[in-house]
Design a protein around this nucleic acid. Structure first.
Length: 289
DNA sequence: CGTTGATCCTGGGCGC
DNA sequence: TGCGCCCAGGATCAAC
């Protein structure tokens, strides 16, 4: 989501909303629809965890991409690509914007002719519209109880250790819980655990202090790498310009089941933890301590 | 309260 | 080519 935010920021800030249209009501959470956004100007783009926060004159529009959500700008002065096919490995990235299709659920038309499109095949994504006056934004995030924010002053070791205390669940499950560290998803959880040499199914109570500290650091490392590579694309992820991310090429375990570990050569294994596919190296991440 | 599992969706890939 | 099954970057809610 940070990749999406960065790609959209310069293009959206200052833009004026002329018209809005929701074609799938399920994804929208707004007490007064979306027409209330018309005529407003985008003031800023922020992010908390996996939530994008678009600030307009009188509202906050919050977007969560779920699993397959895409938020892109469409510029009529650029040609649409002809399909959703992956560009070849050696292909040059030029204009890659996509025209709306049956999975495009939310259109925001801008006064300069461009539009912001929200597309989401699985419809797990959400768009929230909050009134700016009052405590709507605070209430929104208070209700979701997001945990430490990486790269912000809140991300500190004592707080990290405190959140680990008195928990009995598996470390992978905790990493996926957004009330622990906000923004860590399935890919980055597996990658952070690999880098820290921790088996994903271990109970948090069995972690040594040194392992916790390593994990604290590696969460930042893998997120930073993901952002530097502009996101991890397996099938659906694209940034605001429609470009895929390169981080898949730098993954150590996620999506590599059966392939050799890049550190020791052992075959990467895949198990299920918290009903999520979980990848690890049995040698680099031993179960027993 | 903490933890676990079902559920919401659509589409791609695989075995038969 | 088609069918059935399993899998997928996530969060929420019910049940224990």
């Amino acid at each position: 989501m940070e990749t999406v935010r960065r790609s959209l920021e310069s293009r959206l800030v200052g833009a004026r909303i002329s018209n809005c249209c929701v074609t799938e009501k399920k994804i929208l959470r707004s007490t007064r629809g979306v027409d209330i956004l018309e005529g407003q100007t985008v003031l800023s783009l922020d992010r908390r965890g996996k939530y994008l926060i678009v600030e307009t004159d009188r509202h906050h529009v919050i977007v969560h991409l779920g699993m397959t959500g895409q938020l892109t700008i469409r510029d009529p002065n650029r040609p649409d690509s002809q399909s959703f096919d992956r560009h070849p490995v050696t292909g040059l990235e030029t204009a890659v914007q996509h025209p709306p299709d049956r999975h495009t659920h939310f259109h925001v038309c801008l006064s300069d002719g461009r539009s912001l499109l929200f597309r989401d095949t699985r419809k797990f994504g959400r768009v929230f519209v909050l009134e700016k006056d009052g405590h709507s934004l605070l209430d929104f995030f208070a209700a979701r109880k997001l945990g430490l924010e990486p790269f912000s002053p809140s991300y500190q070791l004592p707080a990290f250790l405190a959140l680990l205390r008195k928990r009995t669940l598996r470390i992978k499950s905790l990493l996926l819980n957004q009330s622990f560290v906000a923004g860590v998803g399935n890919i980055y959880a597996d990658e952070a655990l690999f880098e820290a040499g921790i088996h994903p199914a271990r109970r948090t109570t069995t972690l040594r202090r040194s392992e916790k500290i390593l994990l604290f650091e590696k969460v930042l490392v893998v997120l930073e790498r993901g952002i530097r590579n502009k996101g991890t694309t397996f099938r659906d992820f694209i940034d605001g310009d429609g470009r895929e991310g390169d981080n898949r090429d730098e993954l150590f375990v996620y999506g590599r089941a059966g392939e050799p570990c890049l550190r020791c050569g052992t075959a990467i294994r895949k198990i299920v933890v918290s009903q999520r596919g979980t990848h690890f190296c049995p040698t680099c991440q031993p179960r027993k301590r």
